[in-house]
């Protein structure tokens, strides 16, 4: 039974599909799995707080959200994937204030975010620093290096968000290395663990807007349960839609579905 999406969720997905169809490129389903988190992050975090998209292959989700919020121009968005663009398939360094870092090689965002959290903590800033990782990405050894560092240094300003869709590059996470995004593992390391629905707008708003750094000094991890390809039935929970571009028929089908599923609300 497909979930019911709000008008905002359907519209941002249509924007994403237009972007990817226009560029004839893949990384659609992994963007759909985290797009609600990205939307909530940029909508509700404070301006001084960093949000780092460590799963850089979902750059499209970030670009359309920033465009919807008026922080990337239509003209710039149109340049996506084209020669001479700042909006490459993975985020480039210094694209804008919202996109300061080059990301896309997995396992880089968490150490950088950890360093930012350390730097801000050092000068007494109460800012939170958010980093969005994929569950497959938590295979990377830097996850465990930086996570232990954050706990040891009581970096309560560090907020890790794991987009847990259960699929990674070439298999199910449970079949590849097992569940490296297991809440029990993160809890055992010393994180404050919050679990929730990574497509529930109200929950994500409350997490971004209201969750303050842990009073006990623990860094926080949100394990966001998601569906890869969420909102496009033929992509949902399908590994191949990590990679495939849409043809016209599939694009029209997805756009129509998103349009008509709103009528049932």
């Amino acid at each position: 039974m497909p979930r019911t999406l709000s008008q905002q969720q359907r519209h941002i997905r249509q924007k994403l599909l237009r972007l990817y169809y226009g560029a004839s490129c893949g990384h659609i389903a992994c963007s759909l799995s985290c797009i609600d988190i990205v939307q909530a992050a940029y909508s509700w975090k404070a301006a001084s707080e960093e949000f780092i998209l460590s799963k850089g292959h979902a750059a499209g989700a970030m670009y359309v959200v920033l465009n919807a919020l008026g922080r990337i121009s239509d003209e710039q968005l149109t340049s996506f994937y084209k020669d001479g663009t700042k909006l490459a398939a993975h985020p480039s360094a210094g694209t804008s204030r919202d996109i300061p870092f080059a990301l896309g090689s997995l396992g880089h965002g968490l150490p950088i975010a950890t360093g930012i959290a350390y730097g801000k903590n050092h000068v007494g800033l109460a800012d939170r620093t958010f980093v969005l990782m994929s569950d497959g990405e938590t295979n990377e050894g830097t996850t465990w290096e930086a996570a232990h560092f954050a706990v040891r240094n009581s970096l309560s300003g560090l907020f890790v968000i794991i987009d847990k869709n259960g699929l990674q590059g070439f298999g199910r996470t449970s079949d590849v290395l097992g569940d490296t995004a297991d809440p029990a593992v993160w809890r055992a390391m010393g994180f404050r663990v919050i679990e929730g629905d990574g497509h529930n707008e109200a929950f994500l708003k409350s997490f971004m807007d209201e969750t303050r750094p842990d009073a006990d000094g623990r860094p926080t991890v949100l394990i966001a349960n998601t569906v890869k390809g969420c909102g496009v039935p033929y992509m949902e929970d399908k590994l191949e839609w990590h990679y495939l571009p849409m043809n016209k028929e599939l694009f029209d089908d997805a756009m129509t579905y998103l349009e008509e599923s709103g009528h049932a609300e």
């Binding site: 150490p111 950088i112 950890t114 360093g115 959290a117 830097t142 290096e145 232990h148 560092f149």
Partner: peptide
């Protein structure tokens, strides 16, 4: 003091953490 950091036997994250710290103007 806290500007000295033993990042552990973890050279890869140590570099990323240093980059994050440097990105704050240090």
């Amino acid at each position: 003091g806290s500007r000295f950091i033993n990042a552990g036997v973890a050279e890869q994250s140590m570099i990323g953490i240093a980059a994050g710290i440097a990105s704050c103007g240090n």
